[in-house]
């Protein structure tokens, strides 16, 4: 009886989450699976068309090809750069600095603001052809290109914005670094290992669980990036589809072209892509992630 009561209390505490999950997450997920097999324009009722949405995604959607290519470029460039950058800053801050909390806060600020529309708008101004960044370059005699409005550079300005939001990743790295026992470094120093060797043989191996976590989270986030691309390209994904990230194209399909069935199918394909990549990451983790407690 007492045991039953404990369970009940447990579920009662879980209730808010459970309601949220079933009403706001699971239900809609199932609905979107259904919608992905329909032609649905938002305003009239969905009409069953079988796998046609999926078929045309793979056979005749020139924009989707562009979009996947742009998204891959974005993910596979921004994730490593963002992680290395965050790690470098974390190590810098891990030198026993005074005012560490202050620095930590300052470096975290971009992440707090980063997802916001305002920062994207600001970014657009800074990297405009006549923006602050190019004015700075002009002072040292370099004529910068139009970072935002040229199809060859636009995606890099998005990647730059993503890298700049390294704060949360950095905080986690910093916490990981603080966990590494200092004795290890002392022992290594006594044995004559240099800084580089210490990094390669002590820091990196002991940091791999944190790295794995950051990598997974950042990868998933990057695949789902929307706001930056939407604001910076004015909702178009242009010029010439060069910033047409997957989620942005999904939005355009659903809300501009009113093809919600197709957009739902795209969402499922994205889920699939992310699942495969994350799955591979987990499979690979046993070969490179080192848990000092044996992963138990």
């Amino acid at each position: 009886m007492g045991k039953y009561k404990t369970y009940l209390a447990g579920y009662a505490f879980l209730l808010p989450w459970l309601i949220g999950f079933f009403a706001l997450t699971l239900g809609p997920i199932i609905a979107s699976l259904y919608l992905s097999f329909t032609k649905y324009d938002l305003l009239t009722s969905p009409e069953w068309i079988g796998t046609k949405n999926y078929v045309s995604m793979f056979t005749d959607d020139y924009r989707l090809k562009d979009s996947i290519w742009v998204t891959m470029k974005y993910v596979f460039l921004s994730v490593p750069v963002r992680l290395s950058f965050a790690l470098a800053i974390a190590m810098l801050l891990n030198q026993g600095l005074r005012l560490l909390n202050l620095y930590r806060t300052i470096y975290y600020i971009p992440s707090l603001l980063g997802g916001s529309v305002a920062i994207s708008v600001l970014w657009k101004q800074v990297f405009d052809k006549e923006g602050v960044f190019n004015q700075g370059l002009a002072m040292v005699g370099i004529e910068g290109p139009a970072w935002i409005s040229s199809p060859s550079y636009a995606i890099y300005s998005l990647i730059g914005l993503s890298v700049w939001q390294f704060g949360s990743v950095m905080i986690i790295f910093l916490a990981g670094l603080k966990q590494i026992p200092t004795e290890l470094y002392e022992a290594a120093t006594v044995d004559g290992a240099g800084k580089v060797r210490q990094f390669a043989k002590i820091t990196m191996p002991l940091l791999t669980p944190v790295l794995f976590f950051n990598l997974t989270i950042t990868l998933i986030q990057s695949f789902q990036t929307f706001t930056k691309a939407f604001i910076i390209s004015g909702g178009s994904g242009g010029p010439i589809n060069s910033t047409l990230l997957y989620s942005l194209y999904l939005y355009i399909k659903g809300f501009t072209f009113l093809d919600m069935g197709y957009a739902s199918a795209m969402a499922w394909v994205l889920l699939f892509i992310i699942a495969i990549i994350t799955g591979l990451l987990f499979l690979s983790s046993r070969y490179w992630v080192f848990y000092s407690d044996g992963g138990k």
Binding site: P28, I29, S32, P46, L270
Partner: peptide
């Protein structure tokens, strides 16, 4: 971690709400 799909969930949420109201 696979459960974390804010965008996807948001879209799906819209879709459900929309179909219901439709």
């Amino acid at each position: 971690m696979l459960r974390k799909k804010p965008l996807f969930a948001a879209l799906a949420t819209c879709a459900l709400l929309l179909s219901a109201c439709g």
